[in-house]
């Protein structure tokens, strides 16, 4: 249970970054984003996504437009705003730095060396 919790916390920290990455390639509606993230084993349940999308939208990183769907009601397609693109570039840089630092620490203090 404890390890699951920690894992979930770690994933959550990078979810926003991943959403922005997925959307930088093409506009998508929530189910597509979920699909992509599920394939990457990033999310287990879908519920997590909606509040994140809403927050990114409220912060101005994302916008959306309604598009007709062939099956069922119209869908909400999310896309990056110019501000979102800039934000994502910044995140890319700091993500790289973070991965390097974390890897370094993880290697240096891994259980094997103790």
């Amino acid at each position: 249970m404890e390890i699951e919790n920690t894992k979930a916390q770690m994933r959550k920290g990078v979810l926003e970054f991943c959403i922005l990455c997925i959307l930088s390639e093409k506009d998508a509606y929530p189910s597509e984003i979920i699909e992509a993230m599920k394939n990457a084993k990033l999310i287990v349940v879908e519920g997590t996504l909606y509040p994140l999308l809403m927050r990114l939208k409220n912060e101005g990183q994302l916008g959306y437009e309604w598009k007709e769907s062939t099956s069922g009601p119209p869908r909400k397609y999310y896309k990056l705003t110019p501000a979102g693109k800039e934000f994502l570039n910044g995140l890319h840089t700091s993500w790289q730095e973070l991965v390097d630092s974390v890897n370094q620490i993880a290697k240096q203090y891994s259980p094997n060396t103790l």
Binding site: V45, E46, G47, T48, Y50, P51, L52, M54, R55
Partner: peptide, 17 residues
């Protein structure tokens, strides 16, 4: 509900909550 996840998941996504 299994697919959508715990109600808890929804809460932690937004700092406002």
């Amino acid at each position: 509900i299994g697919i959508m996840g715990d109600p808890q998941e929804f809460a932690t996504g937004t700092s406002d909550a």
